[in-house]
C-alpha cells in the first residue's frame, strides 16, 4: 500500500532526517526564506493582521456607522469587556460553551475508547464492518449530517418520534418537539457531534492499542490481574500520550463548534437559549464591531490557552 512508506518514514523521521544539515545553506543563505515567502505573506495577511486588528478593535467603539461615515472610532479602554461581562448574555453563552465542550469531549473520548477496545476483540470480518460504518459517519459533512438529524428529530414526521412511539407502545411522542426545548436541543446536538466525533477517537485509540505488547498483558494476566486492572495499569500507561492528544484536540474542536449548532437553530431551536461562542459571535451581526471583537478576543485567549498544551506536546513529540 502506498500508505506504508510515508507513514513509516514520517514516524521515524524525526530522529535523523529531521535535523537538516548545512547542505544548501552555504551557497544560497536566502533560499529558505524565499521558499517560505508565499506562506509567510499569506498567513501574515490573512491570520496575523486580522488577529491584531481584532485585538485593537476590541478596545474601541467601532461600529457600522464608522464604516458608513468614514470616521475614526474612539478608544474606550476596557469598556467593551466590561459591557459583555456585565450587560449581556455573554457569560451564559461562555458557560454553555464550556459545559458543552466538557460533555462532548468526555463522551467522545470514552465512547472512542470503548469502541477501540471492542474492535480489538472482534474477528477480522466484524472489525472491517465496524470500521467502514464508522468511516461513513466520520465522512459525512457536518452540515449534511445536521440536516439529516434535524429531519430525523422533526416534530411531525421525524423517525425518532415514530420509533419511540412504537417502542413505548403509546402515542406520547407524537408531535414531540425536540428542538424547541433547549435541554433536548442539546441532547440532539450532542448526539450529532458524538456520532461524528467518536470514529476519529476510536481509530486513534485502536491504533494506539496495537502498541501494547502482548507479553506484558499475558504476564499480568498470569499474575491475576482482572480485566479492568489490566486496562488501568498496563494499557493506559501505554496509551496516555494518545489519550492526551485526543483530549486536547477534542477540547479545541468542541469549543469551536459552529455548523451543527447553527443548522439546528435554523430547524427551530431558541437562538437565545442555545447559542455557543461561535454562533453568538455570528449573530452579533454588523452592529458594534468593538463588542464583537471583545468576544472574539476572549474566545481567542481561551483557545490559545488550550492550544498551548497542543503546541508543547507536538514540539516535544517531534523532538525537533
Amino acid at each position: 500500500m502506498t500508505a506504508t512508506l510515508p507513514s513509516a518514514t514520517a514516524t521515524s523521521g524525526s530522529t535523523k532526517a529531521d535535523r537538516p544539515g548545512r547542505r544548501g545553506g552555504r551557497r544560497f543563505p536566502w533560499a529558505p526564506w524565499l521558499l517560505l515567502t508565499p506562506s509567510v505573506v499569506l498567513l501574515a495577511v490573512m491570520v496575523g493582521y486580522p488577529t491584531i486588528k481584532m485585538i485593537v478593535t476590541s478596545f474601541t467603539d467601532e461600529a457600522i456607522r464608522n464604516k458608513m461615515l468614514g470616521t475614526a472610532p474612539n478608544f474606550v479602554g476596557f469598556d467593551n469587556y466590561l459591557e459583555i461581562f456585565t450587560q449581556s448574555d455573554f457569560p451564559a453563552v461562555l458557560a454553555r460553551s464550556i459545559a458543552l465542550m466538557v460533555i462532548l469531549t468526555a463522551l467522545i473520548t470514552a465512547g472512542g475508547m470503548l469502541l477501540a477496545l471492542l474492535m480489538r476483540r472482534l474477528s477480522k470480518g466484524w472489525r472491517t464492518a465496524v470500521s467502514i460504518s464508522l468511516l461513513l459517519a466520520w465522512a459525512m459533512p457536518p452540515l449534511a449530517a445536521t440536516v439529516v438529524f434535524g429531519w430525523m428529530f422533526d416534530t411531525k414526521y421525524g423517525v425518532a418520534n415514530y420509533i419511540l412511539n412504537v417502542l413505548t407502545r403509546s402515542n406520547d411522542w407524537t408531535d414531540h418537539q425536540w428542538l424547541y426545548n433547549p435541554f433536548s436541543f442539546f441532547m440532539v446536538l450532542i448526539l450529532i457531534v458524538t456520532w461524528q466525533g467518536i470514529p476519529f477517537a476510536a481509530f486513534t485509540f485502536y491504533a494506539g492499542l496495537g502498541q501494547v505488547p502482548d507479553e506484558v498483558l499475558e504476564a499480568s494476566q498470569l499474575d491475576g490481574a482482572g480485566g479492568f486492572q489490566r486496562f488501568r495499569f498496563i494499557v493506559m500507561p501505554y496509551l496516555s500520550s494518545v489519550v492526551t492528544a485526543v483530549l486536547v484536540l477534542e477540547t479545541i474542536w468542541n469549543l469551536r463548534i459552529f455548523t451543527q449548532v447553527y443548522a439546528l437553530q435554523q430547524r427551530g431551536g431558541l437562538v437565545s437559549e442555545t447559542n455557543v461562542l461561535p454562533t453568538y459571535i455570528f449573530r452579533q451581526g454588523m452592529g458594534e464591531f468593538g463588542v464583537t471583537a471583545a468576544i472574539g478576543v476572549i474566545m481567542l485567549i481561551l483557545l490559545m490557552a488550550l492550544s498551548y498544551f497542543n503546541v508543547r506536546r507536538t514540539l516535544k513529540e517531534e523532538a525537533l
Binding site: L43, K53, M54, F258, F289, M304, V311
Partner: peptide
C-alpha cells in the same frame, strides 16, 4: 520561530474573528 508560528497559527480560531476578516 517559523515552526512554532505555524503551530500557533494553526490554532487561531477563524470563527473568533469572522467579522474582522469580513471587514478586511
Amino acid at each position: 520561530v517559523f515552526i512554532i508560528s505555524v503551530l500557533i497559527v494553526q490554532m487561531v480560531p477563524g470563527e473568533a474573528m469572522m467579522y474582522t476578516t469580513f471587514n478586511m
